[in-house]
Amino acid sequence: MTQGDTTSTPIVRMEKVNKHFGSLHVLKDIDLEVQHGEVVVVIGASGSGKSTLIRCINGLEEFQQGHIEVDDKELLPDGKSARALQKIRTEVGMVFQQFNLFPHLSVLDNVILAPMKVRGWSRADALEIAERLLERVGIADQSAKHPAQLSGGQQQRVALARALAMEPRLMLFDEPTSALDPEMIGEVLDAMRELAKEGMTMVIVTHEMGFAREVADRVIFIDRGEIVEQGPPETLFDAPQNDRTRNFLSRVLKH
């Protein structure tokens, strides 16, 4: 399904990535590879740099030193890779904490905008895919509404459909359930779970530890801008090796 040997090389490769924000060292020597089909969950306290880390993958954040390769395209430090950047973004979808749906467009128009303008699909082709995706995330009957008329959970599922309409090879999730009312978290996690089952490559920043344990192939714990520990969820959650990991887990798993 993918061309050439891309399935054998990692879709994301970060080498010694450093990011400074003024005097703040936000990311320290990040080394990270993500394989095709892998589901990686990034955990850590707020301010640890986990959101910054995944926002570097699609260039929403610049970094100062190191190397990032996404889908065989290279991202350069200080944002000096405008052309590669747009190609990468075309192949990498993202779901945001605040949904970021376009409030002036209907649900359907939110989903078909990028396929038409970026991929150059006809309206008919884009509509066909959009309707199928909205059906899949359970929003098909709301497609004529505007985002403000939907609940938070519904909005986030539309945002997921919007990203998937570009047929991405990698999906990034930046705390996708953190802005949701508790009773709506489940419906969004269900949609993500299904996506993981279908084999989508995903990098997820989340505070939902139960979900992480269930869907992750690998969990990464990041603290003060460093990858402190990583491993399969059973190891990381049940037998963490590092004191900082143990400390963090004892705080978030207690309640």
Partner: peptide, 15 residues
């Protein structure tokens, strides 16, 4: 206009 609107657009591959 919130920053997130631009970020969401760019993340979809729009110029």
């Amino acid at each position: 206009i919130e920053r997130g609107q631009r970020e969401a657009s760019l993340s979809l591959g729009l110029s």
